[in-house]
């Protein structure tokens, strides 16, 4: 088996269908939707599409967990002991088990919410962030950026479960949230340890994290206003080792991602 498996080679059964990033980016409806007032983007029980939105998000979480499992597994295999010490691989193996459970939980939740495996397309950009050949970059991209996003997503889903008084969703999201806080903390600790004597490498890794954080703010998907379906969760991020300043930075990146998206829409509207 070769080291460093590209995202194009991720193995899936025939139920899964891969979304093409270009299809999403160049979807001609984006421009129209950006100028429509459909009410707040946060999932709310009084909106007509709430169940379908929560189901598609759950499916997104499910495929995201599969990719997180695959990413953690590859970190166990892709590096020599010199690049990734045993203790780091042990943590990644533990994360593998955690992500396996999350896949199981997501499958059960998908059943509960009434969706089937493969009902929605899969985007593999999450795994793509786990393909970096530098383990420190990978830790920053995956454990700090993506697992950080997972904290925000699970926290938002848990809040949705509480609002709708759905005991199953609330219970499951709470447990998964606990694991994600551990994973983010793991990433923060290892990033600091591995770059203790190489501050340039640390800065490069943090820059990579910023890039991933901005990409995963997805032009307003995540933020701190009711226009953002996923809310940045400062409380749990701080538990996971993020400083107040780092939380502020992520919030600013998310805002910037939303502003950039709006500027692009305005430019496209002006051009059309």
């Amino acid at each position: 088996m070769k080291r460093h498996l590209p995202e194009t080679e991720l193995a899936r059964d025939e139920r899964f269908r891969r979304n093409k990033v270009e299809d999403q980016i160049f979807d001609p409806r984006n421009l129209a939707m950006a100028t429509r007032d459909l009410g707040p983007a946060q999932m709310s029980v009084d909106r007509p599409s709430v169940s379908e939105r929560s189901r598609s998000l759950m499916h997104g979480i499910f495929v995201g967990e599969i990719q997180a499992l695959e990413g953690a597994g590859r970190t166990c295999f892709d590096f020599d002991d010199a690049d990734a010490p045993f203790a780091l691989k042990l943590d990644m193996a533990r994360q593998c088990w955690d992500e396996s459970r999350h896949v199981e939980i997501s499958c059960k939740l998908a059943d509960h919410m009434g969706t089937d495996i493969g009902e929605y397309g899969e985007s593999t950009f999450l795994y793509a962030a786990a393909c970096n050949t530098d383990p420190v970059m990978r830790l920053c991209g995956v454990n700090r950026a993506l697992e950080g996003l997972a904290i925000d997503v699970f926290s938002s889903m848990k809040a949705f479960g509480e609002t709708t008084e759905d005991p199953i969703l609330t219970f499951c999201e709470d447990w998964m949230l606990a694991d994600e806080v551990t994973h983010v903390k793991m990433g923060s600790d290892w990033m600091r340890r591995l770059t203790e004597n190489d501050l340039d490498r640390r800065e490069r890794a943090l820059e990579f994290q910023r890039t991933v954080d901005k990409v995963f703010s997805l032009g307003g998907f995540r933020g701190e206003s009711e226009e953002n379906p996923i809310q940045i969760t400062r409380k749990f991020r701080e538990l996971a080792g993020f400083s107040q300043a780092e939380c502020d930075e992520i919030a600013a990146l998310a805002q910037q991602a939303m502003d950039d998206a709006r500027s692009m829409v305005a430019a496209a509207a002006a051009a059309s």
Partner: peptide, 9 residues
Amino acid sequence: EEIPMPIVA
């Protein structure tokens, strides 16, 4: 036609 998945109504 402007409204995509998952906004079903």
